[in-house]
Every structure is written in structure tokens, then in C-alpha cells.
Amino acid sequence: MSDFNTTDFTNPSTFILLGLPGLEEAHVWVSIPFCAMYSIAIWGNFTILFIVKRESVLHRPMYYFLCMLAISDLVLSTTILPKTLSIFWFRSQEIDFGACLTQMYFIHCFSVMESGIFVAMALDRYVAICDPLRHSTILTNSTVAKIGLAVVLRSVMLILPTPFLLRQILYCRSNVFAHTHCDHTAMMKLACTDIRITSYYGLSVALLVTGLVVFFIAVSYIQIIRAIFSLPTKDACHKTFGTCSSHICAVLVFYIPGFFSFLIHWFGHNIALHFHVLLADMYLMVPPILNPIIYGVKTKQIWDRLFWLFTHKGTLTFSPGHHIFRKRIDVQLT
């Protein structure tokens, strides 16, 4: 490690990612749960995409937004984990300056994109519960496509200035990241010039995105709760609110690790550095793992389709009643 702590350079062409500082000898063992998490994220999100594409009954706004979330999770986990595993397995710690900026951009861009998708999902639940008769006319396929495009453009444009601002900074303190991936805050700590513009911009984007997302989701659920409590029976209330449970769980999974990571970053100065890194990794890796599980378990249509695919896989060709059985399921779910 001492070989990397050089200070006689300006703007290095490569950076060094240490992985988990202090746990270098345990990197191979730590890679086992990381590899398992990546496999679960890939399998789970591809399964969601496969089921929604295969089943025409799931071609609805809620599942279109879920597919957007699955794609975002796939890109986010693939941006982080392959490089992290190469550090753990092969000690491939070097990363090109341009590749570092690209990785950081994709991490922040798709994190912001996920927050926008959660707002779109909240809008879908609001219309479905508060104005169910007009749901199909309000959230048409073209409207869903426009919302998805707006979410993507918003993320791309908000994060786009960040790599250009970081490229203008002079780096002469060190080229070592005590991290598993290129982090915006860690990168600014290596600068030896004024970073106020970059710092203020990053903080402003974080506060603006988080504040607006929390505000819109809160407003949606206030209206949803008011509509639910106006229902005549408790059974109807529970059933209606159950349609929102997956979305609520996904939002909590996304923001709770981030909240703890923020607290540890600012107030956990006595906590071991590798714990900081692990918590930052969990913030980015846990949502891609849990989102397909949450929606697979809590969304009846997806669970039924997944169960049906596994239990009837062997009878797709040879069962004469296959088409009748499938038709019955489609009728029940619609």
C-alpha cells in the first residue's frame, strides 16, 4: 500500500481502489457474499423482465415501471460489482481515470433514476386507488413512455455536469481510493484545488432529488390513505393498501441504507474505515437484490406466474389441458 501513496504527481492517469481497507487478507472470503448478491440481483431482475414480457396480462403501467426499475437495478449492480469482485479475486486495483469518472457517473445517474421511478410508481398507485375508473385513460402506454423518458432525461442531465467538474480539478495528494468503487466524495478528497463548485453542486443535487422525491411520494400517499379510509369495510381497506405494500417496502429499502450511510459518513469518525465502505456498498447493492424479491413475493400476479412457470415447466409440451389451464389463470388474475 505504501507504494501507492505517492504525492509527486499531478492528475494521475489511473487510480487505485483498495477494496476494504484493513480487510485485505479477507477479500477472498468477503467476495463470497458479494458474488452471491450479484447473482441474486441478476437472476431476480432478469426474471421480472422475462415474466412481464411473457405474460400479456402484466402489460400494465405498474409492471412497465417495475421493468424500468429492474433495468436500472441491473445496470447499477453491474456497474459496481464486477470491478469489486476483480479487486477481491485478482487484486485488480487500478482503474483508468476516464473509467473511474464513467463508473461514478453511472452509479449516481441510475441512483437518481431509481428515485424517479419510485415517484412514477407512486403516481400509478395514486391514480389506481383514487381514480380507478380513469386509470387506463390517464396512464396510457404513450403516457407511461413519456414518464419513463422524463425520468431518464432528468437523471442524465442532473448528473452530467459532475464528471466534467471533476475532470477540471487537479489531483496531487494521492491516487488511492479507500473504497471498492469510484465515489464522488472520496474523489474530491484527493483534490488539491478549490472544490467548492463541485461540492456545492453535488450536495444541491442530492438534497433537491431526495427532497422532491420524498415530497411527491408523501403527497401521493396522503391522498391514497385518505381514499383508503373512506372505503366502507376494513377488508377493502386492507386489500387496497396491500397493493401499495411492495412500493412502500422498495422505497424504504432504497432510502434507509442511504440514511445510515449518510449518518456514518458525517458522525461516525471513530468507526473503522472498512465499515464505512461496507455500508456504502450495501446502500448500492441491497436494492437491486431485494426489489425483485419484494415484488415477486408481494405482487400476486408475478408470484402466480413465477410459481406456474416452475410447477408446469415440464407440462408445457405434453399436457393437453395446458391452454385451458392457462386461460383459467388469466381469467382469475384479471
Rank of each mutant, 00 (worst) to 15 (best):
M1F: 08
M1S: 13
N5A: 08
T6N: 01
T6L: 01
D8L: 11
D8C: 12
L17E: 06
L18H: 02
L20V: 07
L20I: 08
E24Q: 14
E25A: 14
H27N: 09
S31C: 06
I32T: 12
P33A: 03
P33I: 03
F34E: 03
A36G: 15
I40V: 14
A41W: 02
T47F: 02
I48H: 01
I48R: 01
V52Y: 01
R54C: 04
R60E: 03
F65G: 05
L66T: 08
M68V: 08
L69P: 03
L69Y: 06
A70N: 04
I71L: 07
D73G: 15
L74C: 12
I80S: 05
L81D: 11
L85I: 11
F90K: 15
R91K: 15
E94R: 03
A99K: 00
H108A: 15
C109S: 11
M113I: 09
E114V: 04
S115W: 01
G116P: 00
I117H: 00
A120K: 01
L123K: 08
R134C: 13
H135Q: 10
H135I: 02
H135E: 12
T137C: 12
I138K: 10
L139T: 04
T140S: 15
T143S: 07
T143Q: 11
I147M: 11
V151R: 02
V152F: 13
L153V: 15
L158S: 14
I159W: 09
L160A: 14
L160F: 14
T162A: 11
F164P: 05
R167N: 14
Q168T: 14
Y171W: 03
A178G: 05
T180I: 07
H181V: 13
H181Q: 13
A186D: 15
M187A: 11
K189P: 02
L190W: 00
L190K: 09
D194K: 06
I195C: 13
I195L: 04
I197V: 14
I197T: 14
T198G: 13
Y200A: 14
Y200P: 02
G202I: 00
S204M: 11
V205K: 07
A206T: 07
L207H: 06
G211P: 06
V214S: 07
F215M: 13
F216D: 12
V219L: 06
I224P: 05
I225T: 02
I225K: 05
I225S: 07
R226D: 12
L231A: 10
A236V: 01
T240C: 01
S246P: 08
H247R: 00
C249G: 01
V251E: 01
Y255K: 05
Y255L: 12
I256K: 00
P257D: 10
G258A: 09
F260S: 00
L263W: 04
H269G: 09
I271V: 15
I271P: 07
A272Y: 09
F275W: 12
L278S: 13
L279Q: 12
A280K: 06
M282W: 08
Y283C: 11
V286D: 06
V286Q: 10
N291I: 14
N291E: 07
I293E: 02
G296S: 03
G296A: 02
K298V: 02
I302L: 04
H312Q: 13
L316I: 15
F318K: 11
P320Y: 04
H322T: 13
H322I: 12
R326M: 12
K327I: 03
V331P: 04
V331F: 10
